[in-house]
């Protein structure tokens, strides 16, 4: 039922979403921690920047990324000068775009979770001889488990449905940048509604299952609230 090209697009999409999620957890955790704890007055600037991909049309984001990463952009030129492969029309370009595109979906739930944990468990841990790193690993991480699961799932699901950024930045190269949403668009353009249906329904189902898990888990993991 699925053509080999459809399968290729599916695996590419899953790979992109997974890698993006992992990177976002690594980058987003310290960022969310800082946003939750910092007393700095200018913090709202960073918060607004992080939230920007929520409201910005993906094509706008993709357009500016294309300008920056492209051969004439500052990043593209620096990259070329250092002798690396170009980022546009490449998988790593997609990853870079996705990380920015899905950033708020990972950072915001984490920030909320860290804020909800509050100061007290950390103070308690300090009086029990736990140093700063010990406190983070053995108190914050386990207490924030539900938040991490939510953040990862939202980041993953949101990246699955990415279209505008990919189209602007990566185009439509099968096996390299042709993700599911682009493939679906292609099917519709060529009036292959049956194939479009299969992929669309699949993506719909997958996204729904992920969200079901997020909301289902939220109730059960919050035993201590």
């Amino acid at each position: 039922m699925l053509a080999p090209e459809d399968l290729t697009a599916l695996f590419l999409t899953l790979r992109l979403a997974l890698l993006t999620t992992v990177i976002l957890l690594v980058v987003g955790t310290p960022l969310a921690w800082w946003l939750a704890r910092s007393q700095w007055r200018g913090k709202f600037l960073i918060e607004a920047l992080v939230a920007l991909p929520l409201v910005l049309p993906p094509t706008v984001l993709g357009f500016y990324l294309l300008l920056a990463l492209g051969p004439r952009g500052w990043f593209g030129q620096l990259n070329a000068a250092l002798g690396f492969e170009p980022w546009v029309f490449s998988f790593k370009g997609l990853v870079a775009g996705s990380v920015i595109y899905s950033l708020p979906f990972v950072v915001q739930p984490l920030q909320d979770t860290f804020q909800n944990i509050g100061q007290r468990p950390l103070e308690v841990a300090a009086t029990l001889r736990a140093g700063p790193w010990d406190r983070f690993v053995h108190v914050v991480l386990p207490m924030a488990r539900a938040g991490f699961i939510t953040a990862a799932m939202l980041g993953f699901a949101h990246t699955l449905g990415e279209f505008g950024v990919v189209l602007m930045l990566g185009g439509n190269i099968p096996g390299l940048t042709q993700v599911l949403s682009i493939r679906i668009y292609g099917h519709v353009e060529t009036l292959q509604y049956a194939q479009a249906h299969v992929l669309s329904a699949g993506l719909l189902l997958l996204s729904f299952v992920i969200l079901l898990s997020v909301y289902g888990l939220r109730g059960r993991l919050r035993l201590w609230r």
């Binding site: 103070e123 841990a125 300090a126 009086t127 001889r129 736990a130 010990d134 488990r145």
Partner: peptide, 20 residues
Amino acid sequence: VPVHQRELGYVFQEDNLFPH
């Protein structure tokens, strides 16, 4: 000396126990 290097025990008014 940071809290975690002081040999003290502290009982807060409430919310002492780790919920996890």
